[in-house]
Structure formats: structure tokens, C-alpha cells
Write a protein that binds this DNA or RNA. Sequence first.
DNA 1: CAGAAATCCTTGAGACGACAACTATTGTCA
DNA 2: TGACAATAGTTGTCGTCTCAAGGATTTCTG
Lengths: 168, 168
Amino acid sequence: MSEQATAAETEATASPGECPANTPHGEAWGAMSRTHAAVAGRLQEALAQGDYPPLPWYEVLATVAEAPGKRMRMGDLAEALVITRGGLTKLVDRLVKAGLLERTDNETDRRVSYATLLPAGLHLLTEMRPVIVGELELAFSSSLSVEQANELRATMDAIRGGACRGIA
Amino acid sequence: MSEQATAAETEATASPGECPANTPHGEAWGAMSRTHAAVAGRLQEALAQGDYPPLPWYEVLATVAEAPGKRMRMGDLAEALVITRGGLTKLVDRLVKAGLLERTDNETDRRVSYATLLPAGLHLLTEMRPVIVGELELAFSSSLSVEQANELRATMDAIRGGACRGIA
DNA sequence: CAGAAATCCTTGAGACGACAACTATTGTCA
DNA sequence: TGACAATAGTTGTCGTCTCAAGGATTTCTG
């Protein structure tokens, strides 16, 4: 079944772009992309197995919980989670309906709306966290030392511009 | 639903400012997740700006193009892209409808179906590649040396188990 | 060799997120 | 002040994914 590709077809790419997209950065991106999907899948699976809400819920709860006052403006939250505002509106809708979050207003600027963590949300967060952390340890610790993990985080922040606002 | 939440960790920091999930691996995952989303967004934007198909199309084309014979079994392709088989079926449907891919059969096992690259698909790939590579260079090169990129790829492959081998 | 089990892919239903248009509020400037 | 622009958030629509079920083919087993 493992027949070799004919050299003719392999070389058929007659373009200045030449061969494969195997530039180091391209390779790194590909590996990163696949690994992200794989790990996210494992996390989702672990959560589902424990009858917990999906991963985005955890990310919302965890992000809001770390914000001063346990609340965040919708726009900042969307930016922190790297999703669109429209998407966040509906995501927060679900969390509000589940009694985990609450929408609160800003007196000085009535345009802004805060997503505020409720006690139930904090409680669920503390339940979900061990599941997430445990699964991450399982996935990472065997191939990534603490030092390497810190280095990886620094690298990722650098790529993103090192700008992680939203949290003090 | 299982009750395995350790009260110990919950009570570890009873201050109003709850202790974040800031284990090194957790931080690394969070940064990686956000960076992945951010870079993917930039790639999508760059593609859309050039009137090119969305990013998953590129990933399919690029993956199939590097496979021996420029074709891959559906299952293997789904695994390589880290998406479900059902999702891949429909994704390939679109590429087939666009004339970029073709479904071919396996004589010895009629269950399997190959996604086979067509000339139009290869041509589109060579057009999209510079867009992707350029955007990646733009995003990565300023904060990631070639050495670091290779190291990052190795790290990612290690996390994923280093199993996936689609490229020589 | 028949029937059960496993494998491979597709299909249908439902959920989720992106995109663009919209409302509401605030800021700017003549 | 009043019109216009800018900002914050929501909503409606659409595309695409996951999940579970199904149909088709092959392999295993007694």
C-alpha cells in the first residue's frame, strides 16, 4: 500500500514557490495547529465525560474570575478569548441562562455591559479546573518540563505581540 | 457526574481573589490557545482579502499534495487534520464540487475512498501558499528565529506524541 | 461458509461561531 | 446646541463542525 510517488508527479510543481511549504515557520505553525486541535479535543472529551459544560464555558469563567471585581466588559472578554463580539454575546447568553454569569451595567457609560461572575459560576469553575489541569498535565508533563512550559508561554505571548490586556 | 472535587484545593486560597489556574502548563496552554486563534484569524483574513478559499481548504490541499501519489484515504486525512470523519466528508465534498479534488476508489478494499488532488487543486495550492507563508513570516519571524521555530515544531510534535508523519 | 464483529465512509440533526446590519449611547466639533 | 462620527453591544442569517445513527464492505471465528 505504501507505494512511492512517481518522481514525475512530485516534481510537477513548476513554480517559483517550489516544493513543499516546508519553511521552518510553516512547519511550526502546522504542528502547533494540529497539537492545539488535539489537546482541545482531549479537554473537551474529559469535560464531557464528567458531565461538565464545554471548553469555551471554562475559558469564560476562568478569564472573568481573574479579572478585578470578577467582572469584565464584553469587548475585553471577547478580545481576551479571541472570538468575535457577536459570538461572545451568545456564549455569555448561555452562561447567564445557566445561572453562572450575570450582566451588570456601568453607571458612567451605559453602552458597556459587564459579564459578572456569580457564585455558582465560581463554584463550577473550581469543579472544572482540576479536570482541565489534570488533563493538561497528562498531555504536557510527559514531554514538557516546567521550564519548557514557561518558555513556550513566553514564545506564544511574543508571537501574539506580548499584549495580553484585560487582566491586570 | 462524579464527586471528586477536592475540597483541599478549593479551600487552598479562600481570599476573594481566587487563585488562578496558573500552573506553568496551564499558562502555556492558554497562551498557545490564544495565539493559535489569533494567527488563524490573520491567515483567514489574508486569504479572504485575496479572494481565496478559507483556511481549511488550504490545509486539505497542502496535506494531500504531500501525500504519496497526491492522494489520501479519508480516514487518514481526517486524522492528519485533526477533525472528525463526518466533518471531513463534507469538507471534501466542497473541494470536489469546486473541482479541486476527486474521489477515487481502492480496488482491493471498496470501503476506502481516496481524496485525490486534481491539477486545479494543485494550482490553487501554489497560489495560496505564498499568501499563507507570507502571513506566517509576518507573524512569526519578528519574534521567532528559525532555530526557535524548529524547536517549537519539535515541542509540538512531542506533545502530540510525535505520531503524525505526513511529511518526509 | 455463515454470521458476528470490525472498519470505512456518509448522512441527518443540532450546536456554535463568524459576518454584517442594527440599536443605543457617548464623543466631537462647527 | 445640533448634527455627525465613533464606540459598545446585540441580533439574524448562514456556513461548518461535532455527534450519533446508518449503509456498505471486509475480517474474524466457530
